[in-house]
Amino acid sequence: MTQIVELSEAAAYQVKEMMTHNEEQGSFLRVAVHGGGCSGLSYGMGFEREKSDSDTVLEQHGLTILVSNEDKAIINGTVIDYKQSLMGGGFTIENPNAIASCGCGSSFTTATKKGTPENC
């Protein structure tokens, strides 16, 4: 069965480091989709202390991940990884539902959801 969101071990480690650094231990990781970006939709990740009745709750690598039921179809099957290089590190997001994305890689469009593009 495909997870809505799959967090790699490297990404989970980085999220836990960020939680410790930002004193967010005990928080949930929210993975979301927002309108905006060059292609109309953009990803969001952040920490939240409370979950909503409209959230799907996932447990991976010792983290609790929240995804709103509204965002589930848009990001179903998405893989989030963390890559380190000589230029630094960053999260990578591979969404099988994205049919187009902008050059900067931070916004996308799906066949069913276009969003509202903004200038990059």
Score class of each variant (00 low, 15 high):
residue 1 M to Y: 04
residue 1 M to F: 03
residue 3 Q to H: 05
residue 4 I to Q: 02
residue 5 V to L: 03
residue 7 L to F: 02
residue 7 L to G: 03
residue 7 L to Q: 04
residue 9 E to Q: 11
residue 9 E to K: 13
residue 11 A to R: 08
residue 13 Y to G: 04
residue 14 Q to Y: 14
residue 15 V to C: 09
residue 15 V to L: 15
residue 16 K to S: 13
residue 17 E to A: 07
residue 20 T to V: 14
residue 21 H to N: 10
residue 21 H to E: 13
residue 22 N to D: 12
residue 23 E to Q: 12
residue 24 E to S: 07
residue 25 Q to I: 06
residue 26 G to S: 02
residue 27 S to E: 05
residue 28 F to C: 02
residue 31 V to G: 05
residue 31 V to S: 05
residue 32 A to Q: 05
residue 34 H to N: 13
residue 34 H to P: 00
residue 34 H to C: 10
residue 35 G to T: 09
residue 36 G to C: 10
residue 36 G to D: 09
residue 36 G to Y: 06
residue 37 G to M: 10
residue 37 G to S: 05
residue 38 C to Y: 13
residue 38 C to N: 06
residue 41 L to I: 01
residue 42 S to T: 10
residue 42 S to C: 12
residue 43 Y to R: 06
residue 43 Y to P: 09
residue 43 Y to H: 07
residue 44 G to S: 11
residue 44 G to Y: 02
residue 45 M to W: 00
residue 46 G to S: 13
residue 48 E to M: 07
residue 48 E to L: 09
residue 49 R to P: 01
residue 50 E to F: 01
residue 51 K to G: 13
residue 51 K to Y: 06
residue 51 K to F: 02
residue 51 K to D: 08
residue 52 S to A: 12
residue 53 D to W: 10
residue 53 D to G: 10
residue 53 D to E: 14
residue 55 D to R: 05
residue 56 T to A: 11
residue 59 E to K: 08
residue 60 Q to W: 01
residue 61 H to S: 08
residue 62 G to L: 03
residue 63 L to M: 06
residue 64 T to Q: 08
residue 64 T to W: 00
residue 65 I to W: 01
residue 66 L to P: 13
residue 67 V to A: 10
residue 67 V to S: 14
residue 67 V to K: 13
residue 69 N to Q: 14
residue 70 E to D: 11
residue 71 D to L: 02
residue 72 K to A: 08
residue 73 A to P: 02
residue 73 A to Y: 06
residue 77 G to P: 09
residue 79 V to Y: 01
residue 80 I to V: 12
residue 81 D to W: 01
residue 81 D to N: 15
residue 81 D to H: 00
residue 83 K to Y: 09
residue 84 Q to G: 00
residue 84 Q to E: 15
residue 86 L to M: 15
residue 86 L to C: 08
residue 87 M to Y: 08
residue 87 M to D: 11
residue 88 G to F: 08
residue 91 F to T: 04
residue 92 T to S: 15
residue 92 T to I: 03
residue 92 T to H: 08
residue 94 E to P: 01
residue 94 E to V: 07
residue 95 N to M: 05
residue 96 P to M: 04
residue 96 P to F: 02
residue 96 P to T: 06
residue 96 P to R: 05
residue 97 N to H: 09
residue 98 A to H: 10
residue 99 I to V: 15
residue 99 I to G: 00
residue 100 A to C: 03
residue 101 S to R: 11
residue 101 S to E: 11
residue 101 S to H: 10
residue 102 C to Q: 04
residue 104 C to W: 01
residue 104 C to Y: 03
residue 105 G to Y: 04
residue 105 G to C: 09
residue 106 S to A: 07
residue 106 S to K: 05
residue 107 S to M: 07
residue 109 T to E: 15
residue 109 T to W: 14
residue 111 A to C: 03
residue 111 A to F: 09
residue 111 A to E: 15
residue 113 K to E: 12
residue 113 K to Q: 12
residue 114 K to G: 04
residue 115 G to Y: 11
residue 115 G to W: 13
residue 116 T to I: 15
residue 116 T to G: 03
residue 117 P to I: 13
residue 118 E to G: 07
residue 118 E to S: 11
residue 119 N to R: 11
residue 119 N to E: 12
